[in-house]
């Protein structure tokens, strides 16, 4: 019964209006909205909800996740860019924050100028997986096979600007070959066709692939993180097999530009608490990822990652000639 009451209270709290302006020193005095620019239930949303839950406890105010999907994450990000910079509207975005300025030639906001970075959260590694009866068995064989068969291989990705598309670009870049890329609407349908053997190969986040790899539904070749993963100890890293392909889907927390420094500091502290939380660490581990270190959960680290990643992806995307508008 107690749970029922808290449930009702939760529903009520999420909707209650709060008036009046807040001063930075007693921030926060009302619920904070974290905009996730993707649909609920996806990997980024999951990361956001895990972190938001613990941040709520630390800040003493509800941190509400709001999903504003559409246009490859640029709608939600654009909304936060123009939101009031009072610290009550934040953005949790992934690697797409750094690819959007190149992918979208008419982006209505500037990822560096329109946001105050708060901190990095995590970098989800990716895995190279293929349908069960795909010929190559190891990464070396895969590389040779892809080089030999090129466009006869079908590569699935989860849509324009998705992590799997980016990883595919890097992979083809590293091998200097082209495969036939087949876009899907999200990771779910793409994985369905990999498991069903309708399509050959994908590089996707561990969030989506780990359970399928463990169950033997797909053939896994390598993980793109520098170290092997705890829950897939037999899976080699790309570096071990001599492939230069390192990519992680990094997530960051942002506030609109001009947010009071004291508020950013408070948020940074809450973020650090959340990333040190046991539940968050263990749930992240099940997703095949770890929270970033304390030094990285800072505005400086996020700002640096963002600007270096923007540069990196500008090169890769322009070379591939892939644009989203």
């Amino acid at each position: 019964m107690k749970k029922l009451v808290s449930l009702a209270a939760g529903v009520l709290l999420a909707g209650l209006p709060f008036a009046g302006s807040a001063f930075a020193q007693d921030y926060p005095t009302k619920p904070i909205t974290v905009v996730v620019p993707f649909a609920a239930g996806g990997p980024t949303d999951t990361v956001a909800r895990l972190v938001a839950e613990v941040m709520s406890q630390d800040l003493g105010q509800q941190v509400v996740v709001q999903n504003v999907g559409g246009a490859g994450g640029t709608l939600g990000a654009g909304q936060v860019a123009t939101a009031s910079n009072d610290g009550y509207t934040l953005l949790l975005h992934h690697i797409g924050m750094s690819t959007a300025p190149t992918l979208y030639r008419s982006l209505p906001y500037d990822p560096t100028a329109d946001f105050e970075p708060v901190g990095l959260i995590t970098a989800v590694p990716m895995t190279l997986v293929a349908k069960k009866d795909f010929e190559p068995n190891t990464l070396e064989e895969l590389v040779a096979y892809v080089k030999a068969n090129g466009e006869n291989i079908t590569y699935a990705h989860a849509g324009i600007g998705s992590a799997s598309q980016l990883c595919g670009m890097l992979f083809m870049d590293a091998l200097d070959t082209q495969m036939t890329t087949v876009p899907y609407q999200g990771s779910g349908p793409a994985m369905t066709d990999i498991i069903g053997g309708q399509i050959d190969f994908i590089c996707d986040q561990t969030t989506n692939t780990t359970s399928q790899i463990q169950a033997g539904e797909v053939k896994a070749y390598a993980v793109t993180s520098p170290e092997r993963l705890g829950n897939l100890p037999d899976l080699p890293t790309t570096a071990e097999s001599g492939l230069e392909l390192e990519i992680g889907v990094w997530h960051g927390l942002y506030a609109p530009a001009g947010t009071d420094a004291a508020i950013v500091e408070r948020l940074e502290a809450a973020l650090k608490t959340a990333l040190a939380n046991e539940t968050v660490v263990s749930r992240f581990a099940e997703l095949g990822t770890v929270p970033v270190s304390e030094e990285e959960a800072t505005p400086e680290a996020l700002a640096e990652t963002l600007s270096s990643q923007i540069e990196l992806w500008r090169g890769v995307i322009e070379e591939a000639g892939v644009y989203a508008d």
């Binding site: 239930g41 996806g42 895990l50 359970s211 399928q212 169950a215 539904e217 263990s282 749930r283 997703l287």
Partner: peptide
């Protein structure tokens, strides 16, 4: 999409939905 949300719910509970 509703099932995708359910995936999220499983994961939040510490269970990764899959064949296992």
């Amino acid at each position: 999409p509703v099932m995708a949300l359910m995936v999220g719910a499983f994961i939040l509970q510490g269970i990764t939905p899959g064949p296992n």
